[in-house]
Design a binder for these strands. Sequence first.
DNA 1: AATGAATGAGCATTCATTCAT
DNA 2: GATGAATGAATGCTCATTCAT
Lengths: 194, 194, 194, 194
Amino acid sequence: MSKAERTKQFIVEKTAPIFNKKGYAGTSLNDMIEATGLTKGSIYGNFVNKDDVALAAFDFNLKKVDAVIRQEMATVNTYREKLLVYTKVYENFYEFPFPEGGCPVLNTAIEADDTHPELKKKAADAIIYWKEKVVRMIQKGIANNEFAANTDPEQVALTIIATIEGAVMITKLTGKLNYRRAIMKSIDRLIHDL
Amino acid sequence: MSKAERTKQFIVEKTAPIFNKKGYAGTSLNDMIEATGLTKGSIYGNFVNKDDVALAAFDFNLKKVDAVIRQEMATVNTYREKLLVYTKVYENFYEFPFPEGGCPVLNTAIEADDTHPELKKKAADAIIYWKEKVVRMIQKGIANNEFAANTDPEQVALTIIATIEGAVMITKLTGKLNYRRAIMKSIDRLIHDL
Amino acid sequence: MSKAERTKQFIVEKTAPIFNKKGYAGTSLNDMIEATGLTKGSIYGNFVNKDDVALAAFDFNLKKVDAVIRQEMATVNTYREKLLVYTKVYENFYEFPFPEGGCPVLNTAIEADDTHPELKKKAADAIIYWKEKVVRMIQKGIANNEFAANTDPEQVALTIIATIEGAVMITKLTGKLNYRRAIMKSIDRLIHDL
Amino acid sequence: MSKAERTKQFIVEKTAPIFNKKGYAGTSLNDMIEATGLTKGSIYGNFVNKDDVALAAFDFNLKKVDAVIRQEMATVNTYREKLLVYTKVYENFYEFPFPEGGCPVLNTAIEADDTHPELKKKAADAIIYWKEKVVRMIQKGIANNEFAANTDPEQVALTIIATIEGAVMITKLTGKLNYRRAIMKSIDRLIHDL
DNA sequence: AATGAATGAGCATTCATTCAT
DNA sequence: GATGAATGAATGCTCATTCAT
């Protein structure tokens, strides 16, 4: 990895939590120089503009989520258990190397949808990728006789994702962990009933 | 209503959709004077600062949602039908006088949670108020023998709310109306199975 | 004149000499706040951007030249004498309220031709307006039997203007006042021979 | 020519047209690295700073003009014909290897006179050198009985130069080639009448 | 009570230049 | 000798807020 690549990586690592917490518009260049200890020139030497950093930060945060999920899924065998990984992880953010500030897809979706088409696109792609992944797992589970044959994989996948994201929002907002536990239990029930 | 009160009301009405779309940080005083046709002095004469307007705009947007829900609920009789009003309304924003920019609780929750304690508080209160309202309806439905006696009202209420908000986010992000329909169908099923 | 109009006028008056000396690109916002004693916000409250000030400053400088020329022309009677006003004025900048930094048309023409289409347009219009004015005076002089009937008014007008501007450039560059005197004498001869 | 000398020459060749079009202040280091394909380090290894390149670029552009003039003058015999070379060349830039962006003396004179003493000095020297050259040709033409004995060589030289530069400015500004033709005809007449 | 001109800190970005490698 | 990452002052511009009128 060249010096430039290391610096880019460093900038992304240090700024990704800020973008995830304060949002794109709420994160200033000054926040970025403070977080990295670098100068403005150094940031602009490695990225073409703030957008460029924000986009890379989103990717970084997303990859972090993905890595946690993948790692946890690798430890279980059935598709039902794999689906249950989602609620397990999202119910216990802090026990995993999850991005500070919560779910980057949710955070980005809400800020970017009316204001930042590029970020919106990235968030939309992430949701669709996530949904497709869940759909495939359900399909395999059906083929495997784990799940009922009449299950609608897309409907189930979207419902799981929507409910998780809603739970994340509610918990972050109210600070009530038992709210999250209750909602996650509903999802677990849904998965058990497949 | 005094002249001052009418002006305040006018400012709130005109700016509320902007705050809901662009967010608190993304809405500038200039956006506000453009939307109202008033002068800066006039806005500052009626509100102490931008925060003050934003808070009032949130209340206004929330009341708009509440009015739609109440009105629809008044047209049905059973508690099951009343619960089904939520999916009906949230699946067809545009057919109701719903706030432009989507669900104000969701929008505000995500932006404000790490940055604006006062707005966060309002959004949290709204969620809790909403949850309590659903809880009470379920309790009454149980008392009424509409719903099974072993239903956990809070868990169901939170799950419904979380899933609706997740559906709103996903639909706005991806633009796929069939995604929303699929998720809302899951919620309707959940309500039917109570 | 409203307060805003007075401030605009004040900004133009104070910055016009700077634009004429340093050019559009060479004049910074800081130069402008220093020259006016105002703040950035005040300048941007009265002009939409730096361009807007530069365009107004050009007009101001041009009007200053025009006023001097008109005033001097009013004191003489024949068209020959009127034409001789140009050399008299351009040979003695400092005795007239002429814009600091020299001829604004020349200064603007050279900077703007490859870089700033709006300013270029203004300078081009000024040159064409100037030429038309001289053409009309020559035509009237011919009609009046002051000048030879076979004079080509446009050729003469353009030659006078080109030579004056060349003289201004050479004098400013070399600092040699006798160079200017020599060139102006050639123009005067040309006018006498019409 | 050493490697270093070749690189210097290469940088000057590639940047000279940019300085002539955009001016000293308007040409950035980035313009220079783009034009040359070299790195910043490479430019700073061969020149002490931007000034240093600008000065060399001016010399390069000037030499280019001079070469064209010399070459054309070599093809004719009388001093009158030699003087007429100026109008011929300046009337048909594009048929000669003339610097892109027009006359470098004029361009530099206007930008540098109030802002850049070193460049101003170079432009002033160029004008004086040019004038001296024309003066010498006229003196020889007088000695030769080509021109009238009472001709004032310096006045004529300065007038020719001023008028040419004015014509260049007017044409570039207005885009009217017939304006240039008319002015050049006046100069040709002046030369014929010597 | 309402105006709108003025404020000045803050914004993202570009600049010419340096210097460790 | 050449590289290119880093610098930090300077750029044009927007912001929420104030206050004399």
